[in-house]
Nucleic acid binder design. Structure first.
Lengths: 138, 138
DNA sequence: CGAAATTAGTTGCATAGCGAACTAAATGGA
DNA sequence: TCCATTTAGTTCGCTATGCAACTAATTTCG
């Protein structure tokens, strides 16, 4: 019945990959959501809440609370910018920087395993297509 | 940085389509999750919790609580099977059956709009590919 | 300049989701 | 038969997510 439904198939796949990356990041004490948010800050920070929320395609409410979590874990800091009294710049801590390489390797290892299961070309094509739909809608 | 990441792109798209279908089903007083679960019961019921959870690729815990919600809304009932004292069969109520056609039309209308934005062929191809990855992994 | 509108971020309240621990029923051997 | 194992479903405690309403700072413009 839902063979051709974007919602059904996409949310199903999202749950599946979330479970897989959850196991992968468990040794770090991080959820995939936290791990990816941290990776963005590590790779692209300093970055404001608003930009981070845009980058991850989450609401600013979710962003704010996720940053609370990472800050509690000692992985990011909120630095007041001199330019604008309303906004913060998020910066990674040394503790986070020490994890950077290993986080990237862990995610790459998961990807490699999935590519093996799915087939290299099908994997690449599909991710590209998903990215395309992401860009086209909303 | 995450251009080729399955997790990043899939979860992002899932959030996006969830927001879109949330707006679409709002007039029914249903979340997309509830609406799709109900549609499965309408189309494929009577069905047990276990089969429904498999069909939707959710845990039985989530399934159980989602069914609570639909039951509270008067849209499904849990019928004790005579065969097995542990399990229920989920059946749609008349109230739910009265919504069936309109739910299907609403989802079809959203799909049509998205196909227009994305392009028919790209849409179909991508959903098929997503379905393929869903089947290949885990 | 100063009031109105916009923008950045937080908080309240809700649903969706998972794993783990649990209860109760059914099944499978010895 | 009866105990051990499996299976169906629920409950607990947690994170992720969104919208709406809020505060505070900044910007716009008459």
């Amino acid at each position: 019945m839902f063979e051709h439904c974007l919602y059904f198939n996409t949310t199903s796949l999202a749950r599946k990959v979330d479970r897989i990356w959850t196991r992968a990041f468990k040794p770090f004490g991080l959820t995939p959501s936290q791990a990816f948010m941290l990776r963005v800050v590590l790779a692209e920070g300093p970055i404001t809440h608003t930009h981070l929320a845009d980058r991850m395609n989450i609401s600013k409410a979710t962003c704010s609370r996720s940053v609370d979590g990472l800050q509690k874990l000692g992985l990011v800091d909120r630095k007041q910018t001199s330019a604008d009294g309303r906004s913060f710049e998020l910066v990674s801590t040394e503790k986070a920087q020490a994890l950077n390489a290993e986080l990237n390797e862990t995610s790459a290892a998961v990807t490699k395993k999935l590519k093996h299961l799915v087939g290299n070309e099908a994997f690449e094509t599909t991710v590209t297509n998903i990215k395309g739909i992401n860009a086209a809608i909303d």
